[in-house]
Simulated scan of single mutants.
Amino acid sequence: QDAGIGTSIDSFYEYVLKAYLLFGDEEYLYVFQEAYKAAMHYLHHDPWYIEVNMNSGATVWPLFNSLQAFWPGLQVLAGDVDPAIRTHAAFFSVWQKYGFTPEGFNLATSTVQNGQRSYPLRPELIESTYWLFKATRDYRYLDVGRDILASLQYAAKCPCGYCHISDVETHKQDDHMESFFLAET
Score class of each variant (00 low, 15 high):
Gln75Thr: 03
Ser166Asn: 00
Glu178Phe: 00
Ala69Leu: 08
Tyr98Phe: 15
Pro83Val: 13
Val168Asn: 11
Cys158Tyr: 14
Gly99Thr: 03
Leu43Phe: 01
Ser110Thr: 00
Asp46Lys: 15
Asp143Asn: 08
Tyr139Gln: 00
Leu182His: 05
Glu34Ile: 10
Tyr141Val: 03
Lys97Ala: 15
Glu26His: 14
Ala35Pro: 09
Val144Asp: 03
Gln1Gly: 11
Thr185Gln: 08
Ala84Lys: 01
Ile50Thr: 05
Gly79Phe: 04
Tyr13Val: 14
Leu77Ser: 15
Leu22Tyr: 07
Glu178Asp: 09
Ala19Val: 01
Ala183Met: 12
Ala84Arg: 12
Ala35Gln: 06
Thr101Asn: 08
Lys37Arg: 15
Pro72Ser: 08
Lys134Leu: 07
Leu107Asn: 01
Tyr36Ser: 02
Phe181Tyr: 11
Tyr154Ala: 14
Lys97Asp: 09
Glu51Ile: 02
Glu51Tyr: 06
Cys160Met: 08
Asp10Tyr: 06
Glu14Leu: 05
Gly145Thr: 09
Gly4His: 12
Phe23Arg: 13
Phe105Asp: 04
Arg122Ala: 13
Ala38Leu: 07
Asp25Cys: 10
Thr136Phe: 11
Tyr119Ala: 10
Gly145Met: 13
Tyr119Lys: 11
Ala38Phe: 05
Arg122Tyr: 06
Thr87Gly: 06
Ser93Gly: 01
Leu182Cys: 10
Ala90Gln: 14
Thr111Ala: 10
Val94Lys: 03
Pro83Ile: 07
Cys163Pro: 00
Asp147Cys: 13
Arg137Val: 04
Glu51Lys: 13
Leu29Phe: 12
Tyr162Gln: 06
Val94Leu: 05
Ile50Gln: 01
Arg122Thr: 11
Gly6Leu: 11
Gln116Ile: 00
Ala39Val: 11
